[in-house]
Amino acid sequence: MGSFILKRLINLVPTLLVVGIIVFIITRMIPGDPASVMLGPQASVEDVENLRAELGLDKSLPAQFVSYIADLAQLNLGYSYSYSESVFGLIAERFPNTVILALAALFIAVVIGIPAGIFAARKQNTIVDYVVMLVSLVGVSMPIFWLGIMLVLFFSVNLGWLPATGMGSMDDGLWAFIKHLILPACALATIPMATFARITRSSMLEVISQDYIKTARSKGIKEYLVIGKHAFKNALTPILTVLGMQISNLLGGAVLTETIFSWPGMGRLIVDAIDKRDFVVVQGTVIFIAFIFVLVNLIVDVLYKVVNPKVNLDSDGGKK
């Protein structure tokens, strides 16, 4: 297991390097001079020249690339002029908020989606199964930015039950904190929840029809043990695969959810930085999210191996 993790960590290096190169190329494609765009039309030529020098834009492209990679290696993501703060500081301030939102959404998705899938599989071809499948089909097709707005319209504007925007502080008590979290977490949870329900149902159906489950039942083992212990354990591998993919959905979805609910996280930071034309922040946050995504996928791969030691993830054409 140790060598497996080490090997995966070494494999990360080229991927992370490619991520860095892609972001470098994209940000260098920005039409016009980023320095003058960032400072706005009123800026003097001198100010623009100073910022260009500060950002290293006056150097040749290869030289820019070398210092950019060197900065990345030292976790130096640059300095934001519009926020007057280092990009790393901005991220350190906001990333925990995104993690809270994403984990809350993941929690809702797992706690509702997986049991719904198991339940639907147990009651295959009954009305319960059809309802779960229909709801999850609508769920995977949901534009979550629209769902977020509809939740605000219904629960905040019409009923006045929950706050429409912002993040509650723990100083005001746990309930104030949770109250602010419910709507954005529900919106963000929709697609993963529906996906979990669908994949759990199909992999449970596959497992339930196998001989050892029939044997377990014929031995008189209680049904909840058959399903919960024997069947679910073996249905877990495809669910874990989907979990890895959903992390991407959660991080991407956070950009939209945070915008709607004014949640002070990474997504909101990116959208605000785009509005302010602060490319240093856009570049830094995008790289950071990509790095986190790659790391989380590594953790999922390790979990995958723990659940199913026979799986060989090293060969080509392995888990996607």
């Binding site: 080229p14 991927t15 039409p31 991407s248 950009v255 939209l256 785009i274 790095f291």
Partner: peptide
């Protein structure tokens, strides 16, 4: 494939957003 892995490291919508800020 390493390049594709690199592109895959960006959440889909985030990659599209980043490209749009550059393309206009």
């Amino acid at each position: 494939m390493r390049t594709m892995d690199g592109l895959f490291a960006f959440p889909f919508i985030l990659l599209a957003i980043t490209l749009m800020t550059v393309l206009g």
